[in-house]
């Protein structure tokens, strides 16, 4: 695929699993492209209430997640950057980061989760699709059925 859509992508990664799945799926599409990739892990802030987990704790986790991204994308001519933005709304924060980065698109793999859980914890995928001002590419998560 030699699409300009994948020229400069933002890759929101939520967990190690997610990072693995998303990077492995996006990699074959990038290879001959010389793309720029910005991996983003948003640290959700409660905006006035105490957070559920320490910020430092989640920053450490973000770095673990990024190392998976970097490992998967290493050895290919791809420029990988990472960023840890903070925000109360994960989807909106990803979008803000994408516009700062001037991304050509946002690429993600939706994670499974019951509707009930999404209602309580926020549905990031839906937020990305609804509010985005730039192309959003959803890569299919083909080995569903594991833990999620």
């Amino acid at each position: 695929m030699t699409d300009t859509l994948l020229q400069r992508i933002v890759l929101p990664v939520a967990s190690i699993e997610d990072a693995k799945a998303t990077t492995e799926r996006v990699l074959p599409r990038l290879r001959d492209n010389g793309s720029d990739v910005l991996a983003v892990h948003v640290i959700e802030k409660a905006g006035g209430a105490p957070d559920k987990a320490s910020v430092e704790q989640r920053e450490n986790r973000a770095r673990d997640i990024f190392s998976v991204v970097e490992e998967t994308l290493s050895g290919v001519e791809i420029d990988v950057e990472t960023r840890i933005p903070y925000g109360t709304d994960i989807a909106q924060t990803v979008l803000d980061t994408a516009s700062e980065f001037d991304a050509s698109s946002i690429v993600f793999t939706p994670r499974s989760g019951s509707r009930w859980v999404k209602l309580l914890t926020g549905d990031t995928a839906l937020g990305l699709l609804n509010q985005s001002d730039r192309p959003v590419i959803v890569l299919p998560d083909d080995d569903k059925g594991g833990s999620g």
């Binding site: 967990s15 559920k52 987990a53 914890t121």
Partner: peptide
């Protein structure tokens, strides 16, 4: 949970306890 995390950071407590949940991002 913050105290647990800080203890894990200093290796006084196992960091197993401080694993952040993959989906819910909570300790």
């Amino acid at each position: 949970a913050r105290v647990n995390f800080a203890m894990g950071r200093d290796k006084i407590l196992t960091n197993w306890l401080n694993q952040v949940h993959d989906q819910f991002r909570t300790p």
